[in-house]
Amino acid sequence: MKDIFALLKQGSMAALTAAIVNFVLACLKGLAFLFTANVAMFAEMMHSFGDAVNQLFVFTGSSLSKKAPTKRFPFGFGRLVNLVCLFAIIIVAILSYETVREGIHHIIEPLPVQTDTTMLLINIGVLLIAVVLEGIVLFKAGKELLQQAEQPYDGIKPLTLSYKYMNRAKPATKLVFLEDTVATAGALLAIIGILIGRFAGIEQSEGIVSVIIGLMMFYIVYKVFMENAAGVLGESDPQMEQRISQIVFRNDDIKDIQKLIVMKEGDDLHVEVVAEIAPELTVEYTNKLRDDIEALIMKQSHIADVNLEFEVDDGRRSWPETQGQLDNKSGKK
């Protein structure tokens, strides 16, 4: 039992926080829907339930993926988070379908516009609470995302700069950030749809909003499925490969790189490098050179292990040096 709790502590806190918040919001929206029969509120309820289930799975998967390798699974459980996300996204896809279907039904056969002021205030009040809580979770996820991407996260940057560096975050954090972006936008859309229906008399407005929210959920399904399917198969990280090549070329004794692969394994990155060196270097010096370069690589974010091998320079260029790498060699900043 202690081992399980130790693993859970290593899970994505952003995912756990988002799961709890979305479950509470789903219950509030469900109660509001029972009182008002508002289809936009139904869409928001389905969205929150879907997010809560998905993020709970993500938290569990991100925790279990930290389990140490065993004799049966010597490469560890890093890709478990990808498998769990793929399973969870099936639930979200079903809820997305139901949301779109319900929205289309109310576009074809719209209900009379609700004129009761009390019901209007209930819907708007619940949705405003959702905007505030989802916005807080979105901010937390954005801050965590920027920390993982090694970017500044002061001020409102978690809500602005995070989108630029989304691909450099852990899978669980990225998923929570995407889902809460859609959740916050969906709650605002639901408010707009209700207000248009009430004051403009457009009966189909809530059904249209429901369809839009469902389609946004389908976008999350597509995004999460594609990224986690790639993670299960084994995906390289081009940006980290570029950064590590600069670290390797920083040493004048490195003449070329024959091979450089950075493989994603859940939240971890595994690095394999084959570099070329001059033939006159001694074994003792070469071993020290390997230790120094591996130590620098291990300081990079999410690196789990490094395998660096040397070959004698063959005189042919295999890895093109960028201007940044040339500047590193010449000592420029």
Rank of each mutant, 00 (worst) to 15 (best):
V262S: 08
L281M: 14
P158E: 00
I91P: 05
I213P: 05
N38Q: 13
L233G: 08
T17L: 12
Q242I: 09
D237G: 06
P238F: 10
M45V: 12
E272Q: 15
F77T: 06
S62G: 03
T118Q: 11
L308K: 03
A278R: 10
P279A: 10
G197E: 10
I89W: 04
K174A: 04
F310S: 05
L120K: 02
N123I: 09
Y153C: 04
A149G: 09
L188V: 15
G135C: 05
G214A: 03
F139V: 00
E276L: 13
D51Q: 05
F218G: 06
E276Q: 14
A6S: 15
V283G: 13
W319V: 13
E235N: 10
Q242P: 07
L326Q: 13
E44H: 06
T286A: 14
V137T: 09
T115R: 14
G231V: 05
A200I: 04
A183C: 01
L159T: 01
N22R: 03
D180K: 02
H105V: 07
E309Q: 15
I4C: 13
T36F: 11
Q239K: 13
Q10C: 07
M216N: 11
V126C: 15
G125D: 13
K255Q: 08
K143V: 00
E309G: 03
Q204K: 09
Y153H: 05
T115Q: 15
Q114W: 05
T322N: 01
I293L: 07
R101E: 12
Q204P: 01
K157G: 01
S62V: 05
M217Y: 01
M13Q: 12
Q246D: 07
I124E: 12
G76K: 12
T117R: 09
L86S: 06
T282I: 12
Y163M: 15
V271E: 04
L28P: 09
G231I: 07
I261G: 03
K223T: 13
N328Y: 14
V137M: 04
D154W: 08
I196L: 14
I194Y: 02
L233D: 01
T70P: 10
V209R: 03
F73W: 15
V137E: 02
P110M: 08
T70Y: 12
E241R: 04
K67N: 13
G135L: 09
V92G: 00
L260Y: 11
E280W: 11
D256M: 07
G186L: 03
L8I: 13
A187H: 01
E179C: 03
Q151S: 07
D313R: 00
P110A: 04
H270A: 08
L296N: 09
M166G: 00
K333V: 15
R317N: 10
